[in-house]
Design a protein around this nucleic acid. Structure first.
Lengths: 262, 262
DNA sequence: AATGCATTTTTGTGATCACAAATCTGGCGC
DNA sequence: GCGCCAGATTTGTGATCACAAAAATGCATT
C-alpha cells in the first residue's frame, strides 16, 4: 500500500522532507481532509503537540502554514479553529475552482502526451473498480488522484499550487458527496469524455467537462446547507458533534499512522 | 502619511495583530515587493533576525509563511532563497491572474454600490496626480490600491486571498513597468472604462477590461526576459547585483521603518 | 597552482523556559 | 437565582539552548 496522503505535486515540496514540521503538517492535513475535525472546533498547539508526541515548535510552524493556506483560521485574539463552511463560501470556492481548474485542463489538453493519457485512463478504471466495492475512502482518494494527475499535465506548478490550496479548503466536505451524489452523477462517463477530449487535443471540450464537473459537485454541496447557510461535514466515525463541557474533547486521536515516536 | 504596506484585505488578517511574527512578515513582504531582494539571493534566519533585531522564533514563522505563499522558496537541503523569475513563470502567473482577477471583476460589476464606484474614481484620480509627479513608488502603491479596492467589491474573501498570493509573487517585478510601459499603456483611460462598466452593471465589459490589463502588463514583463528566459527585476538602489565572495552581503538593510526595537 | 580531505563555522531544527494575555472557575454580593 | 469579579489555569508568544547537518575554510599533497 502506497502513501495515503494526497501527493502534493507542487514544486515547493521537495521529495525528501523528513522534518517533524512536515510530518505534523501532513498529519493535520490528512486529518482535515478525511473529516476528522468538526467545524468550529478549537485547536490548541499543546493539544496537537501532545497528540502527536512532539514539542510545540514543529506544531506551531505546521499549523501556521495551514492557516496561511486557509485550512485553519486564526481567531482575532488567538487560538486556531476549524473554519465553518457556509453556503456562500462553497459557492465562492466553486467559482474559483471552476476558473482555475478549467484553466488547467484547457492547458493540459494542449500538451497531453500519450503516456499521460494512458495514465489517466488507468486511474479512471481504478475508480470504477473501487466504486464497485463501495469503499468511499479509497474512492475519494482515487478521484483526487485523477484530478491532480489531470491538472499536473498542464505543467504549471504555480497553478497546481493554487488548486491544491483550494482543494484543501473544500476537502473536509467532500465526504458529503457519498453516497448519493456520487451514485447519481455520471462520473465515469464524464472522465471518459475528458480523456477523449485530451486525446483529440480539444481544449475547449475538455475545459467544459471539468467546469461542469466542479460546478455540479460544489453546487450539490452548497445545496446541503441548512436554513442558516451552514454546512456540516459527514464525520467518518463518531466524535465531534457534542459540544458539552466535559473537559477538552481529548478523545480525538489525530495520529495518522506514521509519526508514532514516543 | 498612512501605512505604507499594501492592505491585506483578506479576512485572515485581523486588524490588530501586533505580534512580532506579523511585523517581521510585513517587513519581509514590503522588502520583497519593493524589490529590495535580488533573485536567487539566499536568506538565513539569523540574518533576518539580526537585521530586524528579533529572535529566531518570529522570523522562522514569518519566513515559513512567505514560503507557503510562494514568495520565497525553500532549497531541497534547507535555507530559503528568493525565487528566480522566468519567462515561463510570468506567463503562467499571467494566465492565472487573468482568470481570477477577471472572475473578481465580473462579480464586482454585479454588486458595486455607488459609494464603492466613487471610491474607485477617487483612487483613479490620485493615480493621475501621482503620475504627473513622476513618483513611481507612490504610483505603484496607488495602482495596487485601485486593483484591490476593485477586487474587494466582489465581496469574496477567499478569492481576494488567492489574488493577493499571486500579486506577492509578481510584486518584485512590477518595478520593470516603469517608466516605459506605464507611459505607453493607456492606464487612466482603461480605469475609466472599468468604472463605467461597473456603473452600467456591465459584467462582461468590466471583465474584459481587467483581463486585457493584466494580460498586457504581464506579457510586457515576460518580454523583458533574456535569452535564457530569466527576468531580473529593477533594483531601486544599488546592492544585489554583485555575486562576489566578500562575506555575506550584509549591506542589505531590510528594516522598513517600524520595528526598530533594539 | 589545483585538488582532496579534515576541521571549523554556519545554519536549520526541535525542545524548553519565561511571561503575559486570554480563558476558565468559583464564590461573593445584589 | 443572576451577574460580577478575583484568583487560578490555560495558552500563545518570543527567547534561548543543544544538536546535527550543511557549508565554508584551511592545509597538505601532488
Amino acid at each position: 500500500m502506497v502513501d495515503i496522503t494526497m501527493r502534493t505535486v507542487a514544486a515547493a515540496d521537495e521529495p525528501t522532507d523528513t522534518s517533524l514540521r512536515k510530518q505534523v503538517y501532513d498529519s493535520l492535513r490528512t486529518a482535515l481532509t478525511s473529516g476528522r475535525f468538526a467545524p468550529g472546533q478549537k485547536l490548541t498547539f499543546r493539544f496537537v503537540a501532545k497528540a502527536l508526541g512532539v514539542s510545540l515548535t514543529p506544531v506551531r510552524e505546521a499549523v501556521r502554514r495551514l492557516v496561511a493556506e486557509g485550512a485553519f483560521e486564526m481567531q482575532p485574539n488567538r487560538s486556531v479553529r476549524i473554519p465553518l463552511m457556509t453556503k456562500a463560501k462553497v459557492l465562492e470556492l466553486r467559482d474559483i475552482r471552476v476558473a482555475v481548474e478549467g484553466l488547467a485542463v484547457g492547458k493540459a489538453a494542449e500538451v497531453a502526451t500519450r503516456a499521460q493519457i494512458a495514465n489517466l485512463r488507468r486511474i479512471a478504471r481504478e475508480i470504477v473498480a473501487v466504486r464497485k466495492r463501495g469503499d468511499s475512502v479509497a474512492d475519494r482518494e482515487k478521484i483526487s488522484e485523477f484530478h491532480f494527475a489531470l491538472y499536473a499535465i498542464a505543467g504549471q506548478p504555480t497553478l497546481l499550487r493554487v488548486i491544491e490550496g483550494l482543494w484543501l479548503q473544500t476537502g473536509p466536505y467532500m465526504n458529503l458527496l457519498f453516497p448519493d451524489y456520487i451514485a447519481s452523477a455520471g462520473g465515469p462517463a464524464r472522465r471518459l469524455r475528458i480523456i477523449q477530449a485530451l486525446q483529440a487535443r480539444n481544449s475547449v471540450a475538455a475545459r467544459r467537462e471539468i467546469e461542469n464537473d466542479v460546478h455540479g459537485t460544489l453546487s450539490y454541496v452548497a445545496s446541503l446547507a441548512d436554513e442558516d447557510g451552514n454546512i456540516v461535514p459527514a464525520l467518518p466515525s463518531a466524535a465531534g458533534s457534542r459540544r458539552g463541557k466535559g473537559k477538552a474533547d481529548a478523545a480525538l486521536d489525530l495520529r495518522p499512522k506514521r509519526l508514532d515516536l514516543n
